[in-house]
């Protein structure tokens, strides 16, 4: 145990009540961790045991069926999810990084408008997702006229997670020591060259981790997409950015509310697929962080 490595005298010097408090504090911390883990394990065990009979190729090879849970699959929902999330990444990551670079490297924090922007980004991150759904319906789907399509969903989800990408990217950019910038500038590089060749490469691990975590949030969203016309029954994969679509969370919700037991098993199996996609994305984030981490 770690306590044993502390010099004995130091422990003895401490007042009498302290070890008790120390133990109590540790127990509370450990219990908090255990609570989170127990729920996660319970959830995983439940969906795995419930969904196991249907966790096979039918799930991604077949299209949804309302008539027979035995032949039903989630292919259109899986491809729909991949389409929407890829497009969300295309919209949100460049925009988020650009905004973060502006705020960190160019913005003059003494100006009132920059402070207003900063405050608003913090606020935007806390807005409930359904509000973005209403925004997407009113402005993107109807006023701009993109309709109920993959691109409308992607732009809306992109807006939803943009504040998270900006905040994570800013943290990463801020963590690059000023001496790196000063060194680059002293050698005659322009500000843009300094950012592009020194600051950005050094902050990639943080930016990538933040972006992938933001996309992981977007992938589980159902509420805004219900507003945006993600349909509950579709037997076709999306064939472009203006196609109709559905996503895994919606398909899962639809199956759970069916009356036949077979569909509930199917829903559990689809939850496992969704968790696997999430896990894959998070592993990429961890890998990127470890691979490109730099210490000064």
């Amino acid at each position: 145990m770690a306590v044993l490595s502390t010099p004995r005298s130091a422990v003895e010097l401490a007042s009498k009540g302290r070890p008790v408090k120390e133990i109590l504090f540790r127990t509370v911390l450990l219990a908090s961790l255990a609570l989170a883990l127990i729920f996660l394990i319970a959830l995983l065990t439940f969906v795995l045991t419930e969904g196991w009979p249907r966790l096979d190729a039918r799930l991604w090879e077949n299209m949804p069926s309302i008539r027979n849970p035995e032949i039903a699959g989630a292919q259109s929902a899986i491809t729909g999810t991949l389409w929407v999330i890829s497009l969300t990444a295309v919209f949100t990551i460049p925009t988020g990084i650009a905004a973060a670079i502006y705020l960190e490297e160019y913005a003059d924090r003494t100006r009132w408008y920059n402070r207003v922007i900063e405050l608003n980004i913090q606020n935007l991150a806390a807005i409930p997702s359904i509000v973005y759904g209403i925004l997407g319906l009113g402005i993107i789907a109807r006023t701009i006229g993109l309709g109920f399509s993959v691109i409308t969903a992607s732009i809306t989800l992109g807006l939803l997670v943009l504040p998270i990408v900006i905040i994570a990217s800013r943290e990463a950019i801020r963590a690059v020591p000023p001496s790196i910038r000063e060194g680059s500038l002293a050698l005659g590089a322009t500000q843009w060259q300094t950012i592009y060749r020194q600051v950005l490469p050094a902050s990639i691990p943080g930016i990538a981790t933040g972006s992938i975590l933001a996309l992981s949030r977007a992938i589980g969203e159902a509420a805004p997409l219900i507003m945006l016309g993600a349909v509950s029954f579709i037997r076709f994969n999306p064939d472009g950015i203006f196609a109709s679509y559905t996503v895994l969370p919606i398909q899962i919700f639809n199956w759970i509310s069916q009356s036949r037991e077979g569909f509930h098993v199917l829903a559990a199996a689809a939850i496992v697929i969704l968790l696997l996609i999430l896990l894959l994305m998070n592993s990429v984030a961890i890998w990127l962080r470890n691979r490109y981490q730099k210490r000064w």
Binding site: M63, G73, T79, L82, W83, I85, S86, F236, N237, P238
Partner: peptide, 13 residues
């Protein structure tokens, strides 16, 4: 991901 969407021909359900 995008190609996975376009290239997959819907299999006979």
């Amino acid at each position: 991901a995008a190609c996975g969407g376009t290239n997959t021909t819907p299999p006979a359900g």
